[in-house]
């Protein structure tokens, strides 16, 4: 069996994420899909505030960095100006689901023809691992030292469920904690990009991703935690595909 695996052309430099961070995998998957679809020259990405801003230094497409939480609004402005381009956002759970929840939901509600990629690692990474909307109950973070208490902080937010309220083109949740799910996640991203380029409507791929640094774990422990704890709360799969009503 002939297997060829090359670092995608759309990656132009090493990334500067922490060891074992899932961002590097997600970015590589995006680059692979863009290479395969021959879309890198027509792609415009909108980066969030947080670790995702580091994507500027590694992904070779036109990129802008949005204000915190507003990436999908900016992406909608870009897409409506240049409907022939592929427009995606790259956001963390803090950006897309906490401060940017209104922009996220209303981009879906308006069925903006963009792809939102949310990398969900359950913490605010860049600022040092504070509790985020997707932090699990009981999970210790810099702002929930004794573990997230649902009495005080409420329960984690399931963004796929929220987005399912709207008439969207595609909603899927993948994970990059093991090889099989990495390959599935790549397919989700590809499906989202294809649907966008067909003009279908709002597409969103949430990706469960390890943050060993802020989980205070080794990379091995972090992927084990996803398999054993995180996926119970955030089941994987395609939630909306093809039922889109226009």
């Amino acid at each position: 069996m002939a297997i060829t695996k090359q670092i995608p052309d759309t990656i132009f430099a090493a990334n500067s994420f922490c060891p074992g961070c899932g961002h590097g995998i997600v970015i590589r998957l995006i680059a692979e899909v863009l290479d395969e679809m021959d879309l890198s020259d027509r792609t415009i990405g909108v980066l969030a505030v947080g670790c995702s801003c580091l994507v500027n230094r590694t992904l070779a497409v036109d990129l802008m960095q949005s204000a915190h939480g507003r990436a999908t609004a900016a992406a909608a402005g870009i897409k409506r100006t240049r409907p022939g381009n592929l427009v995606f956002t790259y956001q963390g759970d803090g950006d897309a689901i906490s401060i940017g929840i209104a922009e996220t939901l209303y981009s879906a509600q308006r069925d903006e023809k963009i792809t939102q990629i949310i990398v969900n690692n359950g913490v605010f990474g860049m600022t040092g691992g504070q509790m985020s909307p997707t932090t699990l109950v009981g999970q210790r973070t810099a702002t929930s030292e004794k573990g997230r208490n649902s009495e005080i902080n409420g329960d984690p937010v399931n963004i796929m469920k929220l987005l399912s309220q709207f008439n969207t083109a595609y909603l899927a949740r993948g994970s990059v904690h093991d090889a099989a799910n990495i390959l599935k996640t790549k397919q989700y991203i590809r499906t989202a990009f294809e649907l966008q380029m067909r003009g279908e409507g709002f597409t969103c791929v949430e990706v469960i991703s390890p943050c060993p640094t802020n989980w205070h774990m080794t990379p091995d422990q972090a992927v084990e935690r996803i398999a054993n704890e995180v996926l119970e709360v955030y089941p994987l799969g395609e939630f909306v595909k093809g039922e889109h009503q226009k």
Binding site: I44, V46, A67, R70, A73, A74, A75, G77
Partner: peptide, 11 residues
């Protein structure tokens, strides 16, 4: 922010 996106894209 939608204006920012549109303006950044040239509109």
């Amino acid at each position: 922010n939608m204006v920012i996106g549109a303006a950044a894209a040239g509109a």
